[in-house]
Simulated scan of single mutants.
Amino acid sequence: MKQTVILLLLVVLCAFGTRAQQTDSIRISLLTCGAGNEIYSLFGHTAIRYEDPEHHIDAVFNYGMFSFNTPNFILRFTLGETDYQLGVNSYEHFAAEYAYLGRDVRQQVLNLTPQEKKRLFALLEENYRPENRVYRYNFFYDNCATRPRDIIEKAVDGSLLYSADMDVPVEGLSFRQLLHQYTESHSWARFGMDLCMGVQADRPINRREEMFVPFCLQGHFQNACIIDREGQQRPLVSEEATLVPIEGEDADGKSEGITPLQAASLLLTIVAAATFFGVRKRKTLWGLDLLLFFCAGTAGCILAFLALFSQHPAVSPNYMLFVFHPLHLFALPWMLKKVINQKKSRYMVINLAVLTLFISLWAFIPQRFNFAVLPLALCLFIRSASNLILAQKRNK
């Protein structure tokens, strides 16, 4: 039924498009949608609305269409090979969906001339052709916010002038900093992102690069101006309105439950207490080592896979691999054999040295780490040190 509605809508658009664009009653707007609770919706959403009252057309062009049912979706997303596409829906259905999800929708009507509206609509039509509508999604550089920005800039008869210098890197502004800003209430999502992102996520970015976040794009459009070929200047946005207001608590409410830092601190307390008991009683607690190093090695395999094979631009290099790396997993049998027999493990010695450097140089490594990593690193540090202490006691 939904496909039928979309098909009919497209037929109407194609039938009346050329004639409809000749009147100035047409409005084209940028829609910015509020954040949701799913990880892919934490940063909001952007779409383009096309209104032609004369021919009863009210359509939304949406560059954020994807399907979890795509074969190997998780693997392709991990590798940075996710394909999104441009979809078209009626505004009525679009607004109803976001109202149901508890996400507000704000509109910025674009101050375009009839010729610019015609050009923009033609570009959208071209983008929606079957051979053009699918594109390779990139979270930072080519997403549902950057695509509308680029096509609007292309349609303007002249150039867009933003209020700030868009190409100069801003000190303190990075991809990670922006992600933190919009994941404040979702500590586990932030923790996962911090683990996967490497040094490139902490480099200074410019104002144009921050437009991958729909809310940043909305803010820059609010203060932007169009400079036409005659040098005349006019505001890009003629009016603003909230189309789908959300009353009460936002969808992006405070997360409940234990945070990653609290969980990691609790684990550190348990590991430290168990290790103190084990050293005093001369017990190896090899089961604890098996659990900790197996988990650390598994996490390391994921991080190494991302760093080596993923096309995501900010996952490599990643200094987190000094704490979580595949060698924990591969060396586990030989390491446990030494631990069980209370013999000195060379792997534990090397791991202790690496972790000592990592913790000591924490503030100087050119990558920001989630604070929950420190207790986790200390857990591995304590277990490595306990092996050396027990081996030394056995030798005596």
Results as ranks from 00 to 15, higher is better:
Met1Thr: 15
Lys2Tyr: 15
Val5His: 14
Leu8Phe: 14
Leu8Val: 08
Leu9Ile: 11
Val12Gly: 06
Cys14Asn: 12
Gln22Thr: 13
Asp24Arg: 12
Ile28Leu: 08
Leu30Phe: 10
Leu31Val: 02
Glu38Met: 07
Ile39Tyr: 09
Ser41Glu: 10
Leu42Arg: 14
Phe43Tyr: 15
Gly44Glu: 09
Thr46Asp: 06
Ala47Ser: 15
Arg49Thr: 04
Arg49Met: 05
Tyr50Arg: 04
Glu54Tyr: 10
Glu54Leu: 14
His56Lys: 13
Ile57Lys: 04
Asp58Gly: 08
Ala59Leu: 10
Met65Trp: 08
Ser67Gly: 00
Asn69Pro: 01
Asn72Cys: 09
Thr78His: 05
Leu79Cys: 08
Leu79Asp: 05
Leu86Phe: 04
Tyr98His: 07
Tyr100Phe: 12
Leu101Ile: 01
Leu101Phe: 07
Arg103Leu: 06
Arg106His: 12
Arg106Met: 06
Gln107Asn: 12
Asn111Thr: 11
Phe121Ile: 11
Ala122Glu: 13
Leu123Asn: 06
Asn127Gln: 12
Arg129Ala: 10
Tyr135Gln: 11
Arg136Trp: 06
Asn138Gln: 01
Tyr141Ala: 10
Asp142His: 15
Asp142Glu: 15
Ala145Asn: 03
Ala145Val: 03
Asp150Glu: 15
Glu153Ile: 00
Leu160Gly: 04
Tyr162Glu: 05
Ala164Pro: 00
Ala164Leu: 11
Asp165Gly: 05
Met166Lys: 00
Val168Cys: 03
Val170Met: 03
Arg176His: 04
Tyr182Met: 09
Ser185Val: 12
Ser185Tyr: 14
Trp188Ile: 00
Arg190Glu: 10
Met193Glu: 00
Asp194Ser: 13
Leu195Ile: 09
Asp202Thr: 00
Pro204Arg: 04
Arg208Gln: 13
Glu209Trp: 00
Gln218Pro: 01
Gly219Asp: 14
Gly219Phe: 01
His220Asp: 11
Gln222Asp: 14
Gln222Lys: 13
Asn223Ile: 00
Ala224Leu: 12
Cys225Lys: 11
Ile226Trp: 06
Glu240Ala: 07
Glu249Phe: 11
Asp250Ser: 11
Asp252Pro: 03
Lys254Ser: 09
Ser255Val: 12
Gly257Asp: 14
Leu261Gln: 05
Gln262Glu: 15
Ile270Thr: 09
Val271Asn: 04
Ala273Met: 13
Ala274Arg: 13
Thr275Leu: 02
Thr275Arg: 03
Phe276Leu: 15
Phe277Tyr: 13
Val279Glu: 01
Arg280Met: 13
Arg282Leu: 06
Thr284Asp: 07
Leu285Asn: 07
Trp286Ala: 11
Trp286Glu: 08
Leu288Asp: 02
Ala299Gln: 02
Gly300Ala: 14
Ala307Trp: 15
Phe309Trp: 14
His312Cys: 01
Asn318Met: 12
Leu321Ser: 06
Val323Asp: 04
Pro326Ala: 03
Phe330Ile: 13
Pro333Gly: 07
Leu336Glu: 03
Lys343Asp: 12
Ser345Ile: 02
Met348Val: 00
Asn351Leu: 13
Asn351Tyr: 04
Val354Cys: 11
Leu355Arg: 05
Ser360Asp: 04
Leu361His: 07
Gln367Gly: 05
Ala372Thr: 02
Ala372Pro: 00
Leu374Ile: 14
Leu374Tyr: 10
Ala377Gln: 01
Leu378Phe: 08
Ile382Pro: 02
Ala385Leu: 15
Ala391Lys: 01
Lys393Ala: 03
Arg394Tyr: 09
